[in-house]
Design a protein around this nucleic acid. Sequence first.
DNA 1: GTGAAAGCGCTAACAT
DNA 2: ATGTTAGCGCTTTCAC
Lengths: 331, 331
Amino acid sequence: MATIRDVCKLAGVSVATVSRVINNKGGVSKEKEQAILNSIKMLNYTPNDVARRLAGKKSNTIGLIIPNILNPFFPEIARGSEDAANEFGYNIMLCNTDNNKKKEQQYYDMLLNKQVDGIIISSYTATPSELLDIMDKGMPLVVVDNEYENHNIPSINGKNQEGGRLAARHLLECGCKNIACITGPMHINTVRDRILGFEQVLKENKHYKPNLLRVDDFSLKGGYNATKKILKEGNEIDGIFAGNDIMAIGCYKALKEMGHYSFEKIRLIGYDGLEANINYLELSSIAQPMYQYGRMAVELLIRKIEKKEDISLEKIKIEPIVVKRCSTILY
Amino acid sequence: MATIRDVCKLAGVSVATVSRVINNKGGVSKEKEQAILNSIKMLNYTPNDVARRLAGKKSNTIGLIIPNILNPFFPEIARGSEDAANEFGYNIMLCNTDNNKKKEQQYYDMLLNKQVDGIIISSYTATPSELLDIMDKGMPLVVVDNEYENHNIPSINGKNQEGGRLAARHLLECGCKNIACITGPMHINTVRDRILGFEQVLKENKHYKPNLLRVDDFSLKGGYNATKKILKEGNEIDGIFAGNDIMAIGCYKALKEMGHYSFEKIRLIGYDGLEANINYLELSSIAQPMYQYGRMAVELLIRKIEKKEDISLEKIKIEPIVVKRCSTILY
DNA sequence: GTGAAAGCGCTAACAT
DNA sequence: ATGTTAGCGCTTTCAC
């Protein structure tokens, strides 16, 4: 690979002048600039990112810390981040933590050590003080799919309470009166918010039934088991709000096995609005634009990295929308 | 962050001695070694990867080039790679190409420029000579989910012909006589091989019907459309081999819409064996261990990176297995 | 406008 | 066994 020295020899100038040109610093005569540009073309020269980084510049790399790329929620965030990063000339470093604090910590260290320019993190387990520590070390950071109310940590998050309200209202509009809620672990902020909004609307409409709430794994099996249980207990149910689309699929499976082949008697709505490839049952869902979350996180990060803007107060909240499909709208 | 100089000052030795210790080069007295180790602990020192790389060592980073992380096939490869990489102290740089040659080329350049230690690539479009060029530049490389017969390019790939044969045999065993094949584009090597094996077995059993082959997009919609077409043409069909699981889901959807709610009259088998979360219809499939592909690719790469082994002749071929589920085995 | 030279943090000859 | 020093490829200050 050609180095800056090859270029400056060929162009008959010093390294400093070449550096000025490749960094658009100005103060270089037209002739020399042209000569340098030509030499760069000739040699097919690209400045070495590693050396640049060591000399105190950017590494053009962003770390992406997520729980698990196998969870269909995260590829959308990853792809959104990667597309945006690519447009700005950055690469994405992918880190799966399984919500394991030790792995998470290990990745912070690796990313700091590799001197990435910024970190995007989606985690149920990260505490505000851990994140603030990272920011204090001068590492820009944006949280995705979570937020920290009383701390200056920039984040992109859906309005989960509002999403819960939308789900409740939609099921009520469908005529449901006995609505169950089958959800993931309540220690997850987004989950708690969804339930909060959901129950609020039910209470307002006098349809709140506390015994129709079931907590289980955020997985297909979790949705399946919870649904089976709640039905076997003999509860009268005519609607289900599932904590996410994967659980909703599990619910559907359970319903089907118990003889509910159509959604006539029991309506079902999920959360997230996963891509059609995955939600091919076309279950209704409260959709959030995860791909955009990824994009926005990168854009925010880059405002900080490149323009030194203070983004610490930016807590972006995205409005969810109801996607009405065949599990709530009957034909 | 502490540097090697902070450590050597605190320990009262030279940088070289510290370097010897952190690289386990030996030839350091017990006392000094202990002093250095202590200083490292005190200062919470970690050698800077960027500086190390610039001084001619590894960057502990591996590039992963795939078509699209949104395609449920690739998260498994990504997660397998990442897990293995992590165990060896490496990070993964994620690159989505959409099988676009320009993006692919751009990523090669970025990864070379970033001086990653190796590249894993899954691509329908990359030509052998492009890949050999990269290897010639001293960049270790492993191909996943593809292989190049007459070139010394290391690869991890499923035995696709064998997979096609397994699919055909299984459908025949189920009593199918008029078996359609709905597949993705034939310019993809893996696809061609699957069809080859599939047709071979049908021919051997005198059940080959050339007019029952349909090529469409490797997507849910592709499977859906192809199935509708083939049925509307009035073909007598009692079995379908779908090119991958996503297409199989599309087939299922079409079958259902055309009145085939069970698999009694038309059996269906897909390919890949996607994770249960995604294939919750529990369609039968010819399964390949994509997660392992990712792991093995990293392990191979690291043998080359760390032990300088010649891996250019390693073309690993993985045996697929038949996963019999409710779309071929009826209860 | 241009160049020489120091320095980023580390490794590896080469000396001692 | 240990230290000195010259790079790795780039940026940037400081002279000129």
